[in-house]
Amino acid sequence: MIKWIKEFSKGLVVSNPIFVLALGLCPALAVTNTLDNAIGMSGAVMFVLLCSNMLVAVIRPWVSGIVRIPTFIVIIATFVTIVSLVFQAYIPALYESLGIYLPLIVVNCMILGRAEAFASRNKLSLSIADALGMSLGFMAAIVLIAVIRETLGTGALTFFGITLFTLPVLDEQPVSLFLLPAGAFLAIGLLLAVFRKWGLIKND
């Protein structure tokens, strides 16, 4: 049980996929222009990572050597297809705004990385802990970036149509730079520097 908690909690801070390992950066930057997109993306990633880690951990005794990586890729691609079909059917608006980044979860280095580095070497329960921890760490990171970008870029924060709050001055003069691609790099770079300054993440 202690081991389970240890594997679960490491993804949240110590080896946070975005801020520490710098894996899965493409979606972290591309879909963080709004909070809705970030939540949709992290939900999809969580489903794919959890399912692929579980399946990889279960079939671990029969898959080895050179067929390992192709097997993992097919497993991940299957779950990605499932998640895109579900999104397309039930939340088409989110499906449209995530665009090609939804099928691109397949090449998210974080998911293949966890399958190869963790799930293929550990038993099922630990692999579930790892997947949950890593995907919650991923979610925390991209939701944080999205909140910053949407708040500064539009002066308000909305959550699936409900306005959570509106800032007085920024509302009329939003820093629209943060909605541009450049703003994504700026936000994540400054966040990373601040986390390092506070000692949450080790320096290089």
């Binding site: 450049a182 790099f185 700026l186 770079g189 300054k197």
Partner: peptide, 23 residues
């Protein structure tokens, strides 16, 4: 550079400036 900016953070900021130029 300040220690906390070395490596990845400053690379992101450079990318932000390049992104602005490309926009």
């Amino acid at each position: 550079l300040p220690d906390s900016m070395k490596g990845l953070p400053v690379a992101f900021l450079v990318a932000a400036l390049m992104g602005l130029a490309f926009s």
